[in-house]
Design a protein around this nucleic acid. Structure first.
Lengths: 133, 133
DNA sequence: GCGTGATTACTCGGATACAAGATGTCCGAGTTTGAGCGG
DNA sequence: CCGCTCAAACTCGGACATCTTGTATCCGAGTAATCACGC
């Protein structure tokens, strides 16, 4: 049970974009190189973020990705959800009545984790690590 | 990002064992049938629980699995850890200094989830659903 | 100088390849129980 | 009635087979900027 590497790439890419001038578009190539990923693969991940309306892509020469408007309101959870999806951690496959007690406990636990991720904005992370990007 | 079905099977199997007379050994076949899994596969999962010292196996005729001593002290988290492993949700693959701030946030979030799972004992779940097994 | 077209530098999206892990099956080996059988 | 043997009913563990998902690459198509060229 792990977050995929895609989540890792997505998070770091968002930090890069925020650390740079927020309005500037940056090419996939440059973003990929910093993290040692192939540009095509990163592009796929960024497409997901674009569909989640967090960034937007500009095609053509000097194209690339840049942040959308409310980028300073994004939390860690937003990114995780965009990449990993929002479905529950646990699906009870045994039929015992309307609600599985195990399921309920796990869902609350999951909610606590998500709450913590929701409380942490990407912007505040930038401050902590701006010099290390 | 999901718990595997194996975790699901493991949890339910533990509940079955607890709902039955705790000292009784029950065959894999019977346990598997209730959940609609193949006995051989379930056996693999139960081997993990046995290695984690939660249950013990008795071979030979009338063999099967039964709970070990401190079964009433087991939490949901114990089972999850036994099956899913204990490694962290997130591995930062980007090199920026000793500690990745993202990593720290995720780890705390994860700890909150685990705390909640740790607080819920399997025994208390049994009470809620004893009639539905 | 200005429009037009070609070139270049990009992203986009689908198709595909590859790898790893989850899921599930098969079988040979070992172990305990209990029944059958001979003394 | 006792003890020995043997078959039956199990689990154990390793070796596979299969399926799904994550990871990654390739390429054709589209698009925007820029440059070249002709008027």
């Amino acid at each position: 049970m792990k977050y995929s590497k895609a989540t890792d790439y997505a998070l770091h890419t968002m930090l890069f974009l925020m650390a740079a001038t927020p309005d500037k578009t940056i090419g996939v190539h440059q973003l990929a190189e910093k993290q040692g990923v192939s540009p095509t693969y990163l592009s796929k991940i960024l497409t997901k973020l674009a569909k989640a309306d967090m960034i937007e892509s500009a095609s053509g020469a000097h194209g690339g990705y840049k942040l959308k408007q409310k980028w300073d309101e994004l939390s860690l959870l937003d990114i995780v959800h965009a990449i990993e999806g929002t479905s529950s951690l646990f699906d009870c496959s045994f039929d015992h009545g309307p609600e599985c007690p195990i399921q309920q406990v796990v869902e609350i636990a999951e909610a606590k984790m998500e709450q913590h991720l929701r409380e942490h904005m990407l912007v505040t992370l930038i401050i902590k690590m701006k010099d290390k990007l």
